[in-house]
């Protein structure tokens, strides 16, 4: 009896964590997978309809708009929060006043996506909003517009707000990476007379590559899962023009009660996320063997 207990003990330590994760995350996930093959409206039991939901995805204009927006978000994320984060990290690293600059970009890290959405809704306000006021003041009133109700301006405007929120986080990770770069090769090429740009392009950036991969992966996944900002700023509108997959899934499931169809969108989203995170996951799971 005691021996059996001793043998079981290691599993008993793991059990509580496994139970919570299994019951609240993994089981729902499997059920969503099943639901994606059904028609389900919460009231009547799910009815199996094979691949019909997936077939519908291919022809549904709302889904295709949403898919397009999702890719625009991914592209925008790579160009702006990642690119800008790298740029700021490289420029600010080991410069006078670096602490002050860094603190400025930390600020949005401490503010939730919901509050960020509120702040930027105010910035983009058509009448009193900061952006339009500035444009009118500098004589560009022709550029002033209703930023969040025009297509495709609304998606681009939200990506800009997302850039404000996420650049600091990417900057931090890049700075961690920069600090880990050995100084000798950098000093050596500088002695050889390389310019700052050449040093960055041929020495620093290649050494930073592993970190860049991580930041790119994490940023893409974050932007795919991004829901709060759109929910607060446009609710995906007007006329569902600024939805991404994460928002479309929510709307189909919880305002239109197309639970089965919504589930199939969740599956598509998952597939994109898994494809993107493959290498990152392998690295994390492999770590065990590396000890």
């Amino acid at each position: 009896m005691r021996r059996a207990l001793r043998k079981a003990a290691p599993y008993i330590y793991i059990l509580p964590a496994l139970f919570f994760v299994g019951a609240f995350l993994l089981a729902p996930m499997l059920y969503t997978f099943y639901l994606s093959f059904t028609q389900y409206d919460l009231m009547t039991p799910p009815r199996f309809i094979g691949l019909d939901n997936y077939r519908r995805l291919l022809t549904e204009p709302n889904f295709l708009t949403s898919l397009t927006n999702t890719f625009v978000w991914m592209l925008g994320t790579l160009l702006l929060p990642v690119g800008l984060g790298l740029f700021i990290a490289v420029v600010v690293d080991r410069v006078a006043l670096a602490g002050v600059f860094k603190s400025v970009f930390y600020i949005p890290l401490t503010i939730s996506a919901v509050a960020t959405g509120l702040i930027w809704t105010w910035m983009y306000g058509p009448d009193l909003g900061v952006l339009n006021t500035i444009l009118r003041a500098v004589g560009l009133s022709g550029w002033a517009r209703s930023w969040l109700t025009e297509v495709p301006t609304n998606t681009l405007a939200m990506i800009a707000a997302w850039t404000w929120k996420m650049t600091g986080q990417n900057m931090i990770i890049f700075l961690v990476g920069l600090q880990a770069i050995p100084k000798e090769p950098v000093e050596a090429v500088k002695l050889e007379g390389a310019t700052e740009w050449q040093t960055f392009r041929y020495v620093v950036f290649p050494l930073l590559r592993p970190m860049t991969m991580v930041v790119v992966t994490m940023s893409l996944i974050n932007s795919l899962n991004q829901f709060d900002l759109i929910y607060v700023m446009t609710q995906g509108g007007p006329y569902r023009s600024s939805e991404t997959l994460a928002v479309t899934m929510y709307r189909e499931s919880f305002t239109m009660f197309h639970m089965g169809y919504g589930a199939s969108i969740a599956i598509v989203l998952s597939i994109i996320v898994i494809l993107l995170s493959g290498s990152y996951l392998r690295a994390n799971l492999k770590q065990e063997g590396a000890q």
């Binding site: 290691p10 793991i14 496994l18 609240f24 993994l26 089981a27 969503t32 989203l269 998952s270 898994i274």
Partner: peptide, 29 residues
């Protein structure tokens, strides 16, 4: 303690960070 299958159990727990939240919503509700 490294019981047999520990890596698999870890992978199961860790998989809770992998999937988008949309996978949990309807069944949870």
């Amino acid at each position: 303690l490294r019981p047999k299958g520990a890596n698999l159990l870890f992978a199961l727990i860790f998989s809770g960070t992998v999937f988008p939240f949309q996978m949990y919503l309807v069944p949870l509700y």
